[in-house]
């Protein structure tokens, strides 16, 4: 009887060990296979496709960070350096100066700097002060009326790269997608074309 009991325990232990070994090997193997199959640690990160983005202001409010990881970005190549900038000024009731009431940007993060005047036309450079930008995209929407040189981008020094981006879930135009971490920023097609042309000319 005692013998039988000991045998039974042994059998159970044997089965347990076998399953455990198989499980460990299986898990390890599956992990290794997955890792090998994917060809190295190419991470991907969240980014906004500026050609799809409609600047709906969800980026400002849906990011899990208190201050959104999305910021407005200026593509200087596409900018017209306009005096009457629709990204800087509202489309009605404004004066052409930098007084606070004339800003479209709620935080005054879009800076306007005089460059030069030629043939009576004044040119200004517009830059984003990222520490002040909240990613609401108001300037982006305004700029879209003209050249559309301002666009929204996920800033990777701030983005915590959530598994499921809260803004991507809320994004109405599905402009959020995963891009390779080696090429973490996206440009508008127009900007890409301009750059290609510039490189060709040079």
């Amino acid at each position: 009887m005692a013998d039988q009991h000991a045998q039974k325990i042994d059998r159970r232990r044997f089965v347990g060990n076998g399953v455990r070994l198989a499980g460990a090997v299986g898990l390890g193997g599956a992990a290794g296979l997955l890792a090998a199959q994917r060809g190295g640690p190419e991470r991907d990160v969240w980014q906004i496709d500026p050609d799809v983005c409609i600047a709906c202001t969800n980026c400002e409010t849906h990011c899990v960070l208190d201050e959104s990881a999305v910021k407005a970005v200026q593509c200087f190549l596409m900018c017209g350096y306009c005096d009457v900038c629709t990204g800087y000024f509202p489309t009605a009731d404004f004066e052409l100066n930098t007084a606070a009431e004339n800003h479209l940007c709620p935080t005054g993060a879009l800076k306007r700097r005089f460059i030069e005047a030629r043939a009576g036309v004044r040119y200004f450079e517009y830059t984003i002060e990222e520490s002040e930008c909240i990613g609401c995209g108001k300037c982006v929407k305004g700029c879209a009326l003209m050249n559309g040189s301002l666009y929204l981008q996920v800033r990777h020094d701030r983005c915590v790269n959530c598994n499921e981006c809260a803004i991507a879930v809320a994004c109405p135009s599905q402009a959020f997608r995963r891009v390779p971490a080696s090429e973490p920023n996206l440009l508008k097609k127009t900007a890409r074309d301009l750059m290609a042309k510039r490189a060709q000319d040079a």
Binding site: V73, E125, Q153, D157
Partner: peptide, 15 residues
């Protein structure tokens, strides 16, 4: 893009 006399067109900086 205006042709500036002495202003370099800036590059977009990405952190």
């Amino acid at each position: 893009l205006p042709e500036f006399t002495d202003h370099e067109i800036r590059e977009t900086e990405n952190p």
